[in-house]
Design a protein around this nucleic acid. Structure first.
Lengths: 136, 136
DNA sequence: GATAGACCTTCCCATCATGGTAAGGTCAAG
DNA sequence: CTTGACCTTACCATGATGGGAAGGTCTATC
């Protein structure tokens, strides 16, 4: 199987497959005489694993750890659970930050009349010159 | 006022002030004879505006638009509101995605016993070989 | 005055994960 | 044998920020 077919089969672009190889996330595959990379179903399986991990928001580094645990038959699943739990915490922190931003913006938009008058509570807030929109 | 003082006064690092100048977000300030950048309270005000906008998660490009509207006395505040509203939508989409990730991960962690047995529902899900943890 | 240390300048490199492009080699179908 | 689709490597770009080097400037102290 060529890299393009492996890409189609795994959902990881050929570009990224080469990149993952380059950074050592996956092992260099065998090559044909004409230097083409050759993949089998095992490699595609690994690529799918990586893709799913990335989709769930794990970094490459976290993915690498999960991959090692996946391939280690003697692993303790507690380690995996710890990685996932830490990731959940990080995601929840991020969500809280975003929600805080949304809350502020919604308040500002609510205060904004959207007419042609030159005063705008959103811009006033950004400029730090507001007093009316505070603490309500 | 030197760049370091402007940085302290605005909360934007000297590094970023130069960067903002380089990409045209802010205007090049006057210089001393010895080529030092000189800032006044107006520039610091602009930098604070930028900082607040970035803190609220607006991109540099969005910040640039907001800055232009802020400095345009004839602006319509509806434009500002539109930018903010679109930004809210984008943030909410992002939040929903993150929440979906968290939901999946929490489910997987819940199913994971964290013992020393080699089967782990989290890894099974990542590998796409699961059937038990689906649709529940 | 001279010297030390804190500041400034520009320039280059790194991040993280991904995409693009260019120049050239290979393969399969017609 | 040509054409077109594929592969190879290598380099550049993103967005926003930090780090550092090499060299110039300012200020306070001796």
């Amino acid at each position: 199987m060529n890299i393009g077919q492996a890409a189609d089969a795994s959902g990881v672009s050929a570009k990224m497959i080469r990149y993952y190889e380059q950074i050592g996330l996956i092992r260099p595959p065998t090559r044909t005489d004409s230097n083409y990379r050759v993949y089998g179903s095992d490699e595609v399986h690994v690529l799918r694993f990586i893709r799913r991990s990335r989709t769930l928001g794990f970094s490459i580094e976290e993915t690498s750890a999960l991959l090692a645990l996946w391939q280690d038959k003697t692993r303790a699943s507690g380690e995996v659970r710890d990685i996932a739990s830490e990731h959940i915490s990080a995601l929840e922190t991020k969500i809280a930050e975003l929600e805080s931003m949304v809350g502020t913006l919604k308040h500002l938009v609510h205060c904004c009349q959207g007419d042609n008058r030159p005063d705008c509570p959103i811009l006033d807030d950004l400029a730090g010159t507001n007093s009316k929109t505070k603490g309500h």
